[in-house]
Amino acid sequence: MKDGDYVAVGGCLFSRTPLALVRELLRQRRRGLTLARNLTCTEGEFLMVAGAVERIVTAWMSIGLPWGVSKVMRHYVESGRVALEEWSHLALGLRFRAGAMGVPFLPALTMLGSDLMTVGGMKTLQDPYTGETLAAVPALFPDVAVLHVHRADMFGNCQIDGYPHMDADIARAATTVLVTTEEIVTDDATRRHPDRTVIPGFLVDALVHVPFGAFPHECYGLYEADFDHFGEYTAAIDAAGPTAVADYLERYAYGPPTFADYLDLFGGERLARQTRRARELTASA
């Protein structure tokens, strides 16, 4: 990854966010990035406070309803320090899909007539068959995709459980694809369930084995998002403003030399609790 890159982040909101990769990006002190993610959560706040992003391309940014509108987002966007380029959720999904398909745009029926059309400069076109007005949703081809998956093999074939989000399209659309995985499996294991493979290995440039690589966000079936942690994080921001995030980054991103040291800050008991909760929610009913 280079300064100024256009980076697409996999997962959605606090689900399967590649936080180990985001932590590394922070540690490398990247600058001038554009971040594209359909729903943006704490990782967007980290990158704003670290001074790593100039622009965030998203449909929504905050943590979640109980924690209110993101104070960090408001601070950086209202002061003009970071541009927030808003697309509808489907439009952003179709931008990745058009990229994945290798076409310059996709016709769609969404965002029409709204003021969102002008924000990202979406154009309309006339259906050559019926004359109807259509949205021409432009393809997005990110420089780099950062993704976290459930399992992958030595060739980079990736499998995702539960919510697919937009990862498969993002991987196809991006020039460079960086992946962390909960588990490395054998070639035979992939071949036993090829229907589960959503990203073929020939798309993947680098793969790293990082269990709990999305924590404290969730990974479907493996661990639930740590809402207590979000509560503590937002309470600190409520008390001290965005500088609380700078302190948080010292403690969680810049301080711990390895990801294992990072996980130690949460402790094994917390990880075990969140693992148990995920099993309760996804155990076959």
Partner: peptide, 8 residues
Amino acid sequence: PGTGGAND
């Protein structure tokens, strides 16, 4: 926070 999926 923005549209999310509301526009769609």
